[in-house]
Write a protein that binds this DNA or RNA. Structure first.
Lengths: 205, 205
DNA sequence: TTCGATAAAATTGTATACAAATTTAAAGTT
DNA sequence: AACTTTAAATTTGTATACAATTTTATCGAA
């Protein structure tokens, strides 16, 4: 009755390498050498190799190097987010239950008065809850993948203090609460577009 | 069929296994055993293993078995297509050049009078050309992945003779030609919805 | 029979060795 | 210097051995 061991090497490796990429320990552009990573984690090349391949397919690694998304790639990714998260917001307006609506409001409240870390997590949860309300695993997984790549592009935590970001979240929630699907979708799309513009503006500094 | 053949085993394996899944040689539900496939292709388990992992990530294999998408999974996949291909149709109406418009018309003409195989290819090209006109590699690759899974669901070639399918293509092209982005998007979405309904109807027989 | 326990077989996960390919360094020539 | 060419080194791709795990088969008891 035992579930797959809590840490099969190939899973553990994948998660660890992924984390190191996302937290910057393996910086953008860095060449990933199987043997070095394997030694670092005390395993053989085999599970490391699988992990790299998987991360390559997810778009976090390209040609054995940590990706450094260009402005254009970022625009492409955001276009997908705009379409899918816009739809998710529409679903939320139609189907989201009271408990989750309450949790969305909590996310906004936490983001308003919390520290950087709390704000970041609350803002992320806000989006995740809406995406999940699409009840579509394909959409959830596509968005999750893209959020990781976007995370990589973020140069400064400052982002989570973007002016109006939390106000926009509040407007979206208001539309969802009012069960106004069209408005929720439009506001989400505008919100993401503003996000993209902010990223691109940060980019050239 | 004779391109400078990819001599790398892991690429060749991936393509061959993928083909066998799509053409039914490896039928839905079949357990894929690394050693058996390796022997069949005259290589070791290593490249076979990588191929299986990749196909697993693409959604053609689940738990070492060729997937058999449920109605619900099919709906989820089509929802993504509706959103992304709808957007692509909008882009096509805005940006598509004369040459490509001409090619779209050819696809329709071929599909009307060709045999099953020609019709299938022409209909597929029609969609591919529109998706490509989004000029967004992320969208192209997501749709490509989903089309493969849908292909797996198709029980009969009959599909490509679905009533009105080609007429719907013609209407979409007309809207694109007229540079009517909103209408092109709406027609594409309705077209895909009709496709989905047809599949689901086929399913319970 | 049906059920559960358990032994046997099959299959996967991991490490390792070696060959093929790629990258880096070194050398000589202009 | 800059530019090839060649040698050395690094790194990847593949095969293979073995351990760990999962699946299947077998047996006996209720």
């Amino acid at each position: 009755m035992n579930k797959p061991s809590p840490q099969a090497a190939y899973i553990h490796c994948y998660e660890q390498i992924r984390d190191k990429i996302l937290n910057g320990e393996l910086p953008a552009g860095m060449k990933l050498v199987e043997e070095r990573l394997a030694a670092e984690m005390g395993v053989s090349r085999t599970p490391v190799r699988e992990s790299i391949r998987r991360l390559e397919q997810e778009g976090l690694i390209k040609k054995k190097r940590v990706v450094n998304p260009t402005d254009e790639e970022l625009r492409h990714i955001f276009q997908v987010r705009i379409l899918l998260e816009g739809f998710a917001a529409r679903c939320a307006a139609s189907y989201m239950d009271e408990a989750t609506l309450g949790r969305l409001q909590q996310c906004i409240d936490i983001a308003r008065k919390g520290d950087d870390q709390e704000t970041m997590l609350a803002n992320k949860e806000f989006h995740d809850l809406i995406v999940q309300s699409s009840r579509n695993p394909e959409i959830v997984s596509i968005i999750d993948r893209m959020q990781s790549i976007i995370y990589l592009f973020r140069k400064a935590v400052v982002y989570y203090k973007r002016p109006f970001l939390i106000d926009e979240h509040q407007s979206i929630l208001d539309a969802i609460r009012a069960r106004d699907a069209a408005r929720a979708e439009r506001l989400m799309q505008e919100h993401l577009q503003a996000d993209l513009d902010f990223y691109l503006h940060l980019g050239r500094r």
